[in-house]
């Protein structure tokens, strides 16, 4: 190679500019990623700092005090939230997974695509609208109830469960379905015994994420289950207390103690959501390993 050609290699020209641009993009995107983490840390951190003071065993195991009195807790809200979310899950998770199985395993594309699209739209419906819909359906002419709140939360959960389940089921290698097919295993059986077990971790992940998502849902609760009686109630036919509504109500109160209690309840809620997310990730990791991803 002659010296002239080496000179060409040394002439960095616009290469320098490109390198600078490269560096800039790298820095900006890193900052964006750090920002996302920072927001979470700040939210969780401030909830923790402001709420941890009021958090005690007494707070967790005592029902909310009468209006104007202090020294109450959130046991009724925890129980109420648990019942509302549990009923919503029982409704939404099986239906959501069945929808996903139908669209990924059985439906022709001409049906599967529209169903997917509808689920995406349903996912985007503001929860206050879901709340009003259920209000008209179950509460109007009747009365508020924990069950009505469950139905609203189930509608919110359904597209989340169904879409994540679809994603996971499509990750199951088609070679496994082909193998089952070639063994003379009926399609329904191979779905139940091969596809679903292979995707089980991911299906659990989607369900847990949906639970975490609706556990803090407030708008429908205000409409559907907010006029609650005293004490720990368990009948979903009656309005039930809930953590999100407790936070909302306490933070509206002028009392400083009530504000601290709202922070403490928020801490309980966010801890629940975080734990659920971590568990969900673990299941997802297991599932991906199974599917060779």
């Amino acid at each position: 190679m002659s010296a002239d050609q080496h000179a060409l290699l040394l002439d960095r020209g616009n290469l320098k500019r490109r390198n600078r641009f490269n560096k800039a993009v790298e820095v900006v995107s890193t900052v964006a990623a750090v920002l996302a983490v920072a927001v979470l840390v700040i939210v969780v951190g401030s909830v923790f700092l402001k709420g941890v003071g009021a958090l005690s065993l007494h707070f967790l195991t005592t029902p909310t005090a009468l209006f104007g009195e202090s020294g109450g807790g959130i046991s009724n809200a925890i129980v109420g939230s648990a019942i509302i979310v549990a009923i919503a899950s029982v409704i939404a998770i099986p239906i959501g997974i069945l929808i996903a199985i139908y669209t990924t395993e059985f439906a022709p594309p001409s049906i599967a695509h529209p169903v997917r699209f509808v689920l995406d739209i349903l996912n985007g419906v503001p929860t206050i609208i879901t709340g009003i819909f259920v209000f008209g359906l179950l509460v109007e002419g009747n009365h508020q109830s924990g069950f009505a709140a469950s139905v609203a939360l189930a509608i919110v959960m359904l597209p989340i469960v169904a879409r994540t389940a679809q994603e996971v089921l499509t990750l199951v290698p088609s070679t496994l379905k082909e193998a089952a097919n070639a063994l003379g295993i009926a399609p329904w059986r191979s779905t139940v015994r091969i596809t679903i077990p292979t995707a089980a971790g991911g299906l659990i992940t989607g369900s847990l994420l949906a639970v975490a998502r609706v556990a803090g849902e407030t708008a429908p609760i205000i409409l559907l289950s907010s006029i609650v009686s005293q004490g720990v109630l368990t009948d979903p036919g009656e309005p039930l207390a809930s953590i999100p509504y407790f936070i909302f109500q306490s933070s509206e109160s002028p009392s400083a103690t009530a504000h601290t209690e709202a922070w403490a309840a928020a801490l309980v809620l966010i801890a629940f959501v975080l734990v659920l997310n971590v568990v969900a990730r673990a299941f997802y990791a297991r599932s991906r390993k199974r599917m060779g991803a």
Binding site: L176, E178, A179, A180, A182, L183, R189
Partner: peptide
């Protein structure tokens, strides 16, 4: 498919099953 078996390009054992369960999966299912 029970009278005419097939083996594919890439080995495709069922990932949720043991060695033995894989072998008898066609029988069981």
């Amino acid at each position: 498919r029970r009278a005419v078996g097939m083996v594919f390009q890439k080995p495709n054992p069922f990932p949720t099953m043991s060695v033995f369960d894989n072998v008898v999966s066609g029988l069981r299912l």
